[in-house]
Design a protein around this nucleic acid. Structure first.
Lengths: 152, 152
DNA sequence: GGATATAATTAGGTTGCCTAATAATTTATA
DNA sequence: TATAAATTATTAGGCAACCTAATTATATCC
């Protein structure tokens, strides 16, 4: 079985395995989990200043996770003072989420570290190779998505 | 902060995020977790026929996980009949792990699906692009590993 | 022979998700 | 207009994939 393995496929599998172990999302800050950081980024990216905030369901679809996942992350972030919930004035079912000042300040620091690390990576790989990588990963995603649909 | 972001780094981050969601290691078989499959592959790859088997510590270092992780995975796999433990004849502290016939047969099936999927990916990307991807991912791993060492 | 190191194991824990169920609210339909 | 259906957020419980601390027995070193 493994003898007839395509060596390129094998090599690709090994690089995926290695990459899997990388934990590139690792939080640069104690007290903030990587999943929480991703959520804070999502709020920051979406919510303008003086805005009513973003709904749980919008975060959920933006991050492509279930809304209970978002709820529970927000519970923790609210407790720690990074976000605040307010009621939606137009829909009594909904909640609006905003960054607090503490949240904004912390996210500023996190962004620094996080994006510097990605800038460094682009520098390390070169711009052309970085774009290439992004493109190839996107193709991988497309491939697996499509073959998994077929199997259902 | 996000305005000054390098667009290539941003693009790379997005492709990493997307890939993160992919779960490429997903098990093709009900009743076997992806971590278990990786462990079975590790045994298969290492243990020759009629061999005394592989030690827990060797699996642990091969997969780069803690030995309690390996122990607990083996507990489950032994219960399900995929592997068996025997005592090491030369070292009373050690245990030797081997695939059972059931384990071998099942792994044969899993390999088929799993490797076919990777073969398909190589075909989809092309051989040159596949090799390129493997190489780039390896560089990413190297980059993050080295910058993380510096931060400690 | 005693100190130190090693091997596997158990227990408990964290993170990052998921689904089922629920209550309240909004929207759609007859 | 009343009812059914859909939507929103939440809580509870669960799983997978790991980790560390502690422990016991064994092997190795000095």
């Amino acid at each position: 079985m493994e003898k007839s393995r395509n060596p390129i496929a094998q090599k690709l599998l090994e690089s995926f395995t290695q990459f899997h172990r990388l934990n590139w999302r690792q939080s640069p800050i104690v007290g903030l989990k990587s999943s929480e950081i991703m959520l804070l980024f999502c709020i920051k990216r979406t919510v303008k200043s003086d805005s009513v905030g973003i709904k749980v369901s919008d975060i959920s679809s933006a991050l492509k996770v279930a809304s209970p996942t978002v709820t529970q992350l927000i519970n923790g972030l609210e407790t720690s003072g990074f976000v605040e919930r307010t009621m939606d004035q137009e829909d009594r079912r909904a909640v609006r989420v905003n960054l607090t000042d503490k949240g904004k300040r912390t996210l500023e620091k996190v962004s620094d570290v996080f994006y510097n690390s990605f800038d460094g990576l682009v520098e390390y790989l070169g711009e052309e190779e970085s774009s290439k990588l992004a493109e190839l990963l996107s193709k991988v995603f497309t491939y697996f998505n499509e073959t998994r649909k077929e199997n259902f």
